[in-house]
Design a binder for these strands. Sequence first.
DNA 1: CTGTTAGCGCTTTCAT
DNA 2: ATGAAAGCGCTAACAG
Lengths: 339, 339
Amino acid sequence: MADSSRSPGPSTLMDVARQAGVSPSTVSRILNGTAKVSDDKRQAVLKAIEAMNFAPNQMAQGLKKGRSMTIGIVVQDISSPFFDETLRGVDDGLKGTGFASVIVSGHWNADEEAERIRLLLARKVDGIILLSGRMADDTVLNFSTQRPIVSTGRALKTRTALGFKMDNEYGAYLAVHHLIELGHRHIAFISGPSNNADADERLAGYKRALQEASLPVDENLIVEGNYHEASGMLAMNRLFDTHQHFTAVFAANDLSAYGARLALYRKGIRVPDDISLVGFDDLPGSSYTTPPLTTIRQPLYDIGRIATQALLRIINGEAACGEVPPLELIVRETTRRVR
Amino acid sequence: MADSSRSPGPSTLMDVARQAGVSPSTVSRILNGTAKVSDDKRQAVLKAIEAMNFAPNQMAQGLKKGRSMTIGIVVQDISSPFFDETLRGVDDGLKGTGFASVIVSGHWNADEEAERIRLLLARKVDGIILLSGRMADDTVLNFSTQRPIVSTGRALKTRTALGFKMDNEYGAYLAVHHLIELGHRHIAFISGPSNNADADERLAGYKRALQEASLPVDENLIVEGNYHEASGMLAMNRLFDTHQHFTAVFAANDLSAYGARLALYRKGIRVPDDISLVGFDDLPGSSYTTPPLTTIRQPLYDIGRIATQALLRIINGEAACGEVPPLELIVRETTRRVR
DNA sequence: CTGTTAGCGCTTTCAT
DNA sequence: ATGAAAGCGCTAACAG
């Protein structure tokens, strides 16, 4: 009991009403454009609002209207360029809508993810965007009965749940096909974590491209990573330690490609002169690696923006819709024709 | 399925009270541990909560208690590794506190920043963390009468406002001093944007190191960048186009160092064999550039965590405090002794 | 220990 | 066109 009575603590709608000599309902009507109000009263209220620097208490508004004007975003890692680029799209998608977002992290863990979603629900978010979730589809569907959810990496499509799924198999195929066209015959693959659907699909795409070109799938050329830089470096070193022969490497994501690149540098192996390298994601930084990375572009920003717009549409009772651009090969400077 | 014969929407504390045959206050007491409750009633309530899958409506709680359990974070760019690493610290600082954060972006613009802060205030956040704000200190102080604010890049210290300021001048001095010790005599500087306090300080540190070594400050070796990769690349090219002589480059931040690195690569100039390069920030990616970047480490993660803890302390009426580790030189592989 | 009673600040019938 | 009154879901006196 230390702080009460003093400076003009946040003024309330009631204060404004009093000062303007009208009823609270009139102030509310002006704020929301809910009904006609005579011009003189309107002026008086506007003046009072200005003078008192009044802004409606959103918690009170939310409680009354049953809308918090907030959406929840679940990422897995708040400091990964992968998620941050998507977040930028979300941010832009929210621009001018009056919605704000609270971002929580699931840390790649299904249980933590569910826990966080429960928190968001308790905070009465009006909808949820789930990025790269680990939860089962059924769990998502279940949560979506409480609040609409749009998720990446799933093929959902109900009245309150929508999924956007990229064709990872195809993307990986594109990458390896590019290498094969360049004349590469021995292509190593640094995979993603084995318990991951995206990672499995990328592996499948790698294999299909090989098989389609009647090239053998050599299990010794496939080494597991975990999507982080360090794992890419380790994987690369493993390849060398076991004396594999290859002229190109496809890393399941850009981050592990960065790690692989460093391992190569350490060995004094030139890229792309000695070895070609392809990543997956096209993170913002990949245009500035040395040399700039050839990769499969995921439209991260668009995914964020489009997912947000779709969610807003569901929240407004409209039909969910939206389409994201497909994956595409971006040829930069880490790949070249084999001599 | 659990809920079939009840009002639509999430169950309320009132529902729980009814189901357990107690008064709402009793439920509230159990939820908040506000008073002793007999064991049988407690069990009944707990069972009802479980059965109805009840979670208190945070907007109602907030309205009543005058605490939203939310803090606002103002960043300038949601997809910059600089901010995201700090955000990770914030996230960890919030862990287990019951607070969530809503993140907004000021986009390096003082007006937008103030606007966003007003939004956060309307949302009744319990406190604000301002990262690299552009607003005047007075404006911050003014806002801080409504809600506590902790900000980076300022030396504030009042009962409701706290600033953490890194010694940029010193950091830059460290970088250039390192280069000088390595025998470099002609050191170019790619600065930050000219209207930026941090940037000015880093420039000052660059000059001081030079002067201290009785080396001339050659204005032709100073070219303005804007902290982004592209500007680093452009700046580097400008240096070449005007035929400057230098053996080392100090970039005012890592991102522009990345750009400079690419420009060097394009010219076929080796790093560090031909030219040494130093950055500033030590972004997470800087350990994986080719070669790994020598840089001045800012404890981004710690700043986020410590700022958060300080804010929480102020919110709880305790005295603001906290100290962040100083800047330090991280020698990696982009610098070497001049031949 | 526990129920009753007021609101927190705002919106929204329902009258006038 | 405008005011009075009734809550949204929860907590906090204030009685028992």
